[in-house]
């Protein structure tokens, strides 16, 4: 009997925290979404689906949804392309110097997203930014571009910063995947007289299928969730042109003080991500036994 109790006792503190982080917020969120809840006036009456209807009627919601899909989709795919490129580059055996480069390429992933956003905001600055200066010197533009201040370019710039920050993760994952490919497969191809490109498309890339799946899902989930980059670089502006859903939750809840509407939106986000997460679990548990 004692043996049965012990693991439960050991797990108890962790269970309490898990309830706090998982179950309680989700239940309360669900309750909030169907009520009138104001940051100032507190909990009001039940309003049925009204909060959801309000969210759906908001043009900014649809714009943010579009932006979020673009940010997560484009951000993830470009990160994977650059990550794969860097991993293939590092996988060429030219001595110990590659490990130094690998270290350097990982740095954007290590520094705080707030610092990353700040550094990009500064380098893209319209007046004294380095990017505008260089583009002018190259003769590509004649006037300074307000990269983060105009609706056409703001989201694109944030996506570039996100790719810069996220590609190291893809690189390290791809690199591990490359290391795991059996050498025999390449040797056999050499015997058959295969060219480098043949080997890339017929051995290397097919072997990276599982890693690609995991990366795609994780990238989509994390990028869809990401609040930091957009908030630090543009606050969702100019005039909400680069607004994404996580920033909109804050806007509804803590700027418009409408916690009910914020909860309704956060439940919509949760449903999208829960679907993606279940898909990830399926891929993950196939890859590794728990």
């Amino acid at each position: 009997m004692r043996r049965r109790i012990t693991p439960i006792l050991l797990l108890l503190p962790a269970l309490v925290f898990t309830l706090f982080v998982l179950v309680y917020p989700l239940v309360l969120n669900l309750a909030n979404a169907f009520r009138q809840v104001s940051l100032i006036h507190g909990v009001g009456q039940w309003v049925g689906l009204k909060n959801f209807v309000r969210v759906m009627q908001d043009e900014v919601f649809w714009l943010s949804l579009k932006n979020s899909i673009l940010y997560a989709g484009l951000g993830t795919i470009l990160s994977m392309v650059f990550g794969l490129f860097a991993a293939l580059l590092l996988n060429i055996k030219i001595g110990r110097i590659t490990s130094v480069f690998k270290l350097i390429y990982t740095i954007p992933w290590v520094i705080s997203p707030v610092v990353a956003g700040f550094a990009w905001k500064w380098i893209l600055n319209d007046q004294s930014g380095l990017i505008n200066h260089w583009l002018k010197q190259l003769g590509l533009i004649s006037d300074n571009i307000t990269w983060l201040g105009s609706a056409d370019t703001a989201l694109l710039c944030v996506i570039i910063a996100r790719v810069w920050q996220f590609f190291p993760f893809a690189m390290v994952m791809f690199f591990a995947g490359l290391q795991a490919i059996p050498v025999e497969q390449y040797e056999a191809a050499d015997v058959d007289g295969a060219k480098s490109l043949d080997k890339l498309f017929h051995i290397t890339l097919p072997n990276l299928r599982t890693v690609t799946g995991v990366l795609l899902l994780l990238g989509l989930i994390w990028s869809f969730n990401d609040f930091n980059m957009v908030f630090v670089m543009t606050r969702g502006g100019p005039i909400q042109a680069s607004m994404v859903l996580p920033v909109l939750v804050r806007e509804y809840s803590f700027v418009q003080f409408n916690l009910g509407k914020g909860s309704a939106l956060s439940i919509l986000i949760f449903m999208v991500l829960f679907g993606l997460s279940l898909l990830y679990l399926k891929v993950y548990s196939r890859r590794e036994s728990l």
Binding site: L22, N225, P246, V249, S253, I269, F270, L273
Partner: peptide, 26 residues
């Protein structure tokens, strides 16, 4: 045990924006 591990894995995916309001209220 298996369920607990799955929940641990899953809760790492939980969007901060969808739990912030209850956290704030609590």
């Amino acid at each position: 045990k298996h369920l607990f591990l799955l929940v641990m894995l899953l809760s790492q995916m939980l969007p901060g924006s969808s739990i912030i309001i209850p956290f704030f209220e609590l």
